[in-house]
Design a protein around this nucleic acid. Sequence first.
DNA 1: ACATTAAGTGATT
DNA 2: AATCACTTAATGT
Length: 215
Amino acid sequence: MTEARTQRELIEESLGFLFEAELLEEIIEVGKVKSLESDQILLDTGDDLLYIPFILDGAIKVSRDRDEEELLLYYIESGDTCAMTLQCTVRKSVSEIRATTIEPSRILMIPIMYMEKWMSNYSSWRRYILESYHSRMTELIETVDAIAFMRLDERLEKYLVDQAKLKGSLEIKHTHQQIAEDLHSSRVVISRLLKQLETKGRIQLYRNRIVLSSI
DNA sequence: ACATTAAGTGATT
DNA sequence: AATCACTTAATGT
């Protein structure tokens, strides 16, 4: 009882400003809230796309992975959805990305069968989907730019700043190894570059922890 | 005290 | 910028 109430409130709070009341009711009706700890895989490469996930709170990173290699593509936060899953409106398919929680997160899962119906019935839904697609595309291009045109040290600094903004804290609790994986580099290289940034006074290094001097 | 894991570094490609 | 090989430091048992 109270469970359902809280869930309704949670959904209204996170998504209420996005959709008209009628659609919101439908969303509350058919959506299931999934709670995940930090560092859990929400969706993995090769998984069938059965649900559209909406991030209610927390944050998620979307990365490409081949064999054991990984590369961070972009983050999704509260109010966002994953563009990858949107293509299932057109065609039933499997995921080509991995979505991992980077904070304890609650995600609203909506079966994909509603996609098409809502597309034709609700203008707020159409607008949301198109805008969402657009902003994911923009972020993806930003990432491509970073890989193509920035040196690794610049990319690392951008990564740290992005992390800090995302968490709302200058403290980043990652190992050098984890950062290396996100940037698709090696631990040794990241350690060296971090050391340089520390010498320049941009950061302070500790075990499992990096503190940014400023954003 | 010991083992394990994270981080630092010189040398080489 | 990556890899190897090794050292040093921090942390858990």
